[in-house]
Amino acid sequence: MLQTLFDALSLGSLYALGALGIALIFGVMRLVNFAHGDVIAFCVFALLWPSTDAMAIVFAGQLPWYLLVPFVLLCGAGLSVLCEIVVFRRFRNANPATMMIASFALGFVIRYFLLMLYSSRPKSISLLPALSQPIEIFGARLPLLQLITIVATMAILIGLTLFLRQTRFGLEMRAAAENFSMARMLGVRANRVIMGAFALSGALAGAIALIFGSQTGTVDIQMGASIMLMAFIATVIGGLGSLGGAVLAGFLLGAASVVMQVALPVDARPFRDAFVYGAVILVLLFRPQGLIAARGTKERV
């Protein structure tokens, strides 16, 4: 039981962080950023030295954790801001479909750039090995990593909330996310806010990369994509642009996945994700605006 709860929370953490990264950018730019998954992949690959050998040549992965964590977060933030400056800035006034496809194309470029440097074979890496020890809580044996994942996610969420609530920059970002042109008329600098959102979103991608990398022990080009799909869905279910909604929906999706894994009959288990997607469609039917809808009248993170 406790194990299930922790599974749900740690899977939900990944989805929630992913959804948050997408919602942040959507909020200020109305861009559904398909390149986000590839930013995650980039952060994971940044741990290795570029080579197409099957053996992973660990590079940043060897750093002690207090250097490793900022390094990966910075990688994500840096790449994400670069994407904004080089690509998305040109699409500020484009329609959402064009922006989506442009982000798709950008993701494609990042992915093949990584493939070119590292080849497509998944490589194994032992990241922060100390974390895979199981620990005992209330009689249940849980991987320490799971616990850290959950704690780290909570810390990130609280940190982000404080940042958005207590700082000048956070205030401007929330205002811009709600009504961009009004915020600009009040002197809020569009470029700064958008770059800030991209930097935060990229850092979140770095956090996912660290968590996912140490959970799976592999570096794989596909890993971003699998989280992304669920993260997108979470963003929409949460009510696009609503940060609180995105987080909540991320955890809900994680819980739904884990619960179905346990509750479905054995024969149906491989189809778990199909049920989750079906549930998503149902939710959208009843709440097309998402669970936390009505921008502006509801509380956000």
């Binding site: 989506m100 869905i233 997607y277 998503v280 959208l284 097309p288 605006q289």
Partner: peptide, 8 residues
């Protein structure tokens, strides 16, 4: 919402 549902 429609786009994401088709994705699903």
């Amino acid at each position: 919402a429609a786009s994401i549902a088709t994705f699903a």
